[in-house]
Amino acid sequence: MVKKFTTAQTIFTGWGALQESGTAISELGEKPLVVTSAGTWKRMGTQLNELFSKCFSAYAVCDCINTEPTDTMIAEGLEAYQKNGCDCLIGIGGGSPLDAMKAIAVGTTCSAPLASYMGKEISGVIPPMAAIPTTAGTGSEVTKFTIITDTKTDVKMLLKGEVLLPKLAIVDASLSESTPQSVTAATGLDALTHAIEAYTSKQAQPLTDALAISATKRIFRYLPLAYQDGKNREAREEMAAAALEAGICINNSSVTIVHGMSRPIGALFHVPHGLSNAMLLEKCLQFALPGCYERFGVLGRAIGAASTDSTDLEAANALLQAVKLLCYTCEVPTPEQYGIAKMAFFNAVEKMAADAITSGSPGNTRREVTAEDCAAIYYSLWEN
């Protein structure tokens, strides 16, 4: 079967990569809109202004992406783009500003509501984009996806299209050095989810398999170190590499049940994406194992959780236990510990299960997934 493999057009990696990529940034256009959060701009504004002032005669800033992006934030960013006469975009921050940048780019060339793109392939020509992640997790800098919440329906919309691939991705691990411990955990576990789901997806292919195994091994080894010591340069560099690998994987092999079930939790209860993935990870993988013992087993052996002569079943279960331990090490809260009211959650289960199936992601799981299965997993999050 023929497989297609795509990623960002140009990728810069390495400690200090941002400062070394000025020429490539300057080739984006004449006047960019910088899409970021207020916190990131406050922390990095001086550094970024020095760089962008060398690259462009002028630029504009939209720093309104302070939570996971919504359609109203995108409208605000689009207004800033048009008002300032911009012709390209730079996203800098976690996954939210990078996703927002992509959605704003779509809006610059089409007046249709973002919701109209659900389930369709976005095409056409959009402004050039540069994606600069400051966390190691989402992989948005190398994917054709963006996740935007529809405030009218409380649905996290998965929008996709090859045109959403950034022209330039700059993965500089030094930018993640000050990432808070909780964000390091959530984004790192998001990257792990990407790697495991891409490897066990029905759409997996040889190129993504190699990257997924590599990313999984890196994360199990280095996420605990980055979590315990944010100044550990080696751990930060390895996690940046793992997140990049995992992002390339999901761009080509997609995700499965965890992401499908995670988005509704984020949309309804405002749980950060990586954290909602982490809350679901053990339970969802436990459900998925019977459809794919061989592939889960490969990962279990790759991380050293199982011996080379273990059976696929033994190695798959060893992987599951390793995931459970990593989530414990990173202090992942349950929905209840996070502050979600049990009855509010239970009352939303039917909608969340339906939205999860509608997203299409669970359909990539190598085991049939129904809305009833999703509902049972949601309820199980409240079991001791």
Rank of each mutant, 00 (worst) to 15 (best):
C64R: 12
R218T: 13
Y293N: 02
I377E: 05
E30P: 00
F287R: 04
E372C: 07
G363S: 14
L28C: 08
G304M: 02
G29P: 07
R233I: 15
P290H: 05
I340N: 00
D154I: 02
Q181K: 14
R221G: 01
A136S: 15
C292I: 07
M1D: 00
R295D: 08
G363I: 08
N66Y: 14
W382Y: 14
L175R: 01
N384S: 14
L28H: 04
L33M: 11
L325N: 08
A240E: 09
V34L: 15
G161K: 06
P113A: 08
M44D: 12
Y338H: 12
Q203W: 07
S182G: 03
E177L: 13
Q47K: 13
V369Q: 04
K54M: 10
A131G: 12
G107V: 08
A316Y: 02
D71Q: 12
A302M: 00
V34E: 07
S380N: 01
G16P: 02
P113G: 09
S253W: 06
L159M: 13
S182D: 10
A185K: 10
G297H: 01
Q286A: 15
E372R: 06
E197I: 08
E350S: 10
K167L: 09
G230D: 05
P166Y: 12
C374D: 01
T138I: 10
P290W: 13
G247Q: 09
F345T: 10
L192H: 05
S174M: 11
F287D: 07
E197N: 13
G91A: 08
C249L: 10
E368D: 11
D63H: 08
P69S: 05
M343T: 12
A376L: 11
